[in-house]
Simulated assay, not measured.
Amino acid sequence: MGGEKSKPKPEEPPLLDEPWRKINSGDKQHDLQYVRDYKPQTEGQQLRILLHGPAGAGKSSFINSVQSVLLGRMYRQALADNISHSCFTKKYSTFRIQRENPDTFYPFILNDIMGLSPQKGVQVDDVKLAFTGHLKEGYVFNPGSKLSEGNEFYNKSPTVNDKVHVLVCIVPAHTLSSMSDETVQKIRDIRLEASRLGIPQVAILTKVDQACPEINKDLKNVYRSKYMKERMEQFSADVGIPMNCIFPVKNYHEEIKLNDDTDALILSALRHIIDCGEDFINWKAE
C-alpha cells in the first residue's frame, strides 16, 4: 500500500482576530475637535507641514481630503492628477486650510512639492532648502538643477514661519513593493537631513483600499490586515521611520459624500502630525 498523501497546509486567514491599532470611527469627533481647537503656544506661529513622496502617491489628494474632513464637505483646492504617472505638481505650493468662516484659517500650513521620480523628480537639495525656509511659494522645480541663491524664488531671510516643522512622506500602499531603489534612496536622504535638523517625520500610506482586498471590502479592516501590517513593517525597515509614525489612509478621490471610517483614519494621522510639529516648535523655542 502506498503511503498516505500529505494534506495541503491550510491557508492562514488574511485578517487578525483583533486590530493591532485601535481606531474607532465612531469617536472621530474627538480628533476633529482636537484639530479644530489646536493653537500653537507662540502667538502668530504657523505650523508648516511639508509633504513629499513618489509621483502619483496622493499628496494633493491628501491635502484635499484633510480640507474636506475639516469643512465637513468635499473640497478640491489642490489640483490632483488621475491620469499621468509623471510628476503632476511642478511648483512649491502652499495650502492654508480654511475654517468654517471663509476669512479664517487653521494655524497650520501644508506644502506640496514635485514628486520624487528617479530621473525627472524634485532635487533632494531643493527639499533641503525648503526645510530651512529658503524656498518661496511658486518656485518651479527643475529636475536638472537645484535652486540657486541668485534666483528670485530664493528666500534669503527666512522667518520661523517659513521653516518646516514636520516632514510627511506620502507613499502609495499598493505599489510599495515595486518602488524603485532610487526613490527609496531619495526618501532616505531627505529623512537624514530632516533628522539632522531635528525635524520630526511621519509617513502616510495612501490607496490602502487598492493594496488589500479585505480593506477594499471594509476600511475597518485596515489594522486587521496582515498584508498591510507587513507592508508597513517593511517600509519602516527600508526608510527608518518608526511604526508608530506610519499611518494608512484612504484619500477621497471618487466619492461625493464623506465617510466616517475614511475621516477617522485621516484625522488620526493629522492629529499625530500636529502633535509632532507642536513638540518640535516648543523644543526649538527652549
Rank of each mutant, 00 (worst) to 15 (best):
K22A: 07
V171T: 11
Q33S: 13
M232W: 06
G121W: 01
K90Q: 10
R231H: 00
M114A: 00
L47R: 06
L110A: 07
D81C: 10
P248E: 04
A55E: 15
S84D: 13
C169K: 15
L219Y: 00
M1Q: 14
G150E: 04
E182M: 09
L50F: 01
L265E: 05
S268F: 15
S225F: 04
L258N: 01
E255W: 03
T262C: 06
I187P: 04
K186V: 06
S117D: 15
L50V: 09
E137I: 15
K128S: 01
R21S: 10
A130D: 12
L79D: 06
P143K: 02
A194L: 13
D126R: 08
L70H: 12
S177L: 14
L265K: 04
E182Y: 08
F108Q: 02
N155G: 10
S93K: 12
G72T: 14
T89A: 11
P143A: 01
Q45I: 09
R96E: 15
A78W: 03
V69W: 05
G144W: 00
N161Q: 15
D31R: 05
Q234T: 13
L15D: 02
F131I: 04
E11Q: 04
D181Y: 10
E11T: 00
V35G: 14
S177R: 08
E18D: 12
A130T: 03
D238G: 11
E286P: 04
T262V: 11
W283E: 07
G144Y: 00
T206V: 03
